[in-house]
Amino acid sequence: MTQTMTARDRVMRALAGEKVTPVPCFSGVGNVTSAGLDKLGYRFANVHNNAKMMAESAMTTYELFGYECVVMPFDLCLEAEIMGCKMNPYADSSELLYPTIKEKSTPTTEQLRAIARDPELANKGRLPLMREALKIVRAKLGNQVAVGTYVLGPFTLGGQVSELEHLLKNAFKKPDEMLEYLDAMAEVIIRIGGHLMESGYDYISVREMGATTDVLSPRVFKKIIAPALTKVAKGLKGPRILHICGQVGPIIADMAACGYDALSIDSKTSMKAAREAVGPGVVILGNFNPFAVLNTGDAQQAYNAIAQCVREGVNGVHPGCDIWPTAKPENIQAMMRAVRETSAD
């Protein structure tokens, strides 16, 4: 039975809380590799604004390594652009760089509510491109493989479109204003994420890395961040993953209470402690350090790190962050082999 399932079935079932053997090995965040880009002859800086190039690049990790997903986009600027910010793709840099926001639009709470109600939203920014890219992927791969996408969480998106330092202080000084602001931000995310899911993406990650306990106290997470994350979970349809990197041990139970289908954690959080905190019923994806495992170590170290994730009971083997493109092909192969060989029936 398990053998005949497609990669898409395996991922979708795991996200629905079913036991899948071997555990699926996929990501809800960026995973394009230089190996894939080189095969196509594409520069990373050029793939973000071209549906065909984005789609082709996104498929390569599945095609080359059997990685069990296709995820688009690759950068963290999609929503911010829709909200009037300007992206810098570093087109002229010889370095491999992720796009960043070079001009922030700093919307007010009222402006956020207006954006969330914008009847033309589906045609803004790169949303048309995201629909087009999905069509290209489906035309080639059909339903063999799950196609994921992601949005930023309310607080992290706030830091993308306005000054993070201001938000951090306000989370402490003006909690009521912040609750309103994040509530409005949640509405924007629901519109954008909802549109992506309606256009046919299979699952969506909500990335709230700005609210990790390396930055904010568990108390602030519970009081200020969790209500907006809960609103986003309620407002989005389809499998939703809540991804927070860094140390989330002290807030994992609060994350679970936000109502997502799955939680995604990184290597700074102990899988054992996370499982103990939330119990066997919560789907946890994780929790390896992609840079250490896929880029700096050797293939055997990669194999061992992934085997440990499987042994500790992840419901899906998932990186703690975007896979850095220069990941070594032999390490990715070792990761896939470790998942197959060490998942117990």
Binding site: L168, K169, A171, F172, K173, T213, V215, L216, V220
Partner: peptide, 8 residues
């Protein structure tokens, strides 16, 4: 203390 407290 966390980052907001440090900034303040």
């Amino acid at each position: 203390y966390f980052v907001p407290e440090m900034l303040m």
